[in-house]
Amino acid sequence: MKKKTAFDWACLVFIILFLFITVFPFLWIVITSFKTDADIHGAATYALLSAHPTIENYIAVIFDKGVLNAIKNSLIIAALTTVYVTITASMSAYIIARFRFKGRTLLVVIILGVSMFPQMILIGPIFNMFYQLGWLNSYMITLPYGCITLPSAVWIMMTHFRQVPASLEEAAKMDGCSPWKTLWKIIFPIAAPGIFASAILTFISAWNEYLLSLTLNSDVSWMSVPVRIASLQNEYTIYWGQITAAAALVTIPTLIIVLLFQKQIVSGIASGGVKE
């Protein structure tokens, strides 16, 4: 190992500080989740550890408030969305990045354009559609989620596909690969960081979505995580203990997923997987 210079030490301090600030609010959520309501608004407000820590909040959200069911709903919805958005977006991004056709620029601009509208205007028409088709309170909600996340997924993948050396593709074509096979065998592995980054972003966007899920899946048994947590309050009381406990709980699945896939984001060309 090289000797650490002052610059390195400065970097280290910066990294630690940076991570601390990033993690602190979440830590505070966890700390608060072990406090009683009296502690949260009393003398122990700023205490790191409550004098009488409690797990009541966790018990309440798991057994009475059905947070586990909400986690299940959100996981299924987010996973479905991620899978089909990634497939749809990668197919389209490949064509847009590699082929010339009439209206190509227009298509790219339209994809960008639809993501400029606020989600609230989607709600009315999509609700009507879902009501007519009997799709309220079902996993069909993944369909409109796709449209929220598709534009960014297509754009991200487009930029990454363009970075793949064209010569590789030519070679594949010489070998008689179909477009589908070229995409799957050549482009996908090289552009993996972009694809995984976009998949993670899609997953978390679907996981975070609030307005559509509030109206389309309003039944308690179909509620998603954000809606379920936000409803842990009424006119006079915000159950901070329960909200923080639920927030801490629901963050775990997403963190596990990120932990599993984080390696894939940093691979591709940089890892030397491809030699030209």
Binding site: V23, I204, P226, L255, Q262
Partner: peptide, 15 residues
């Protein structure tokens, strides 16, 4: 570190 760095993004905005 990568996972920790992503924590804020994983907490639903409404929450």
């Amino acid at each position: 570190i990568r996972t920790m760095g992503l924590i804020p993004w994983a907490i639903p905005t409404a929450v």
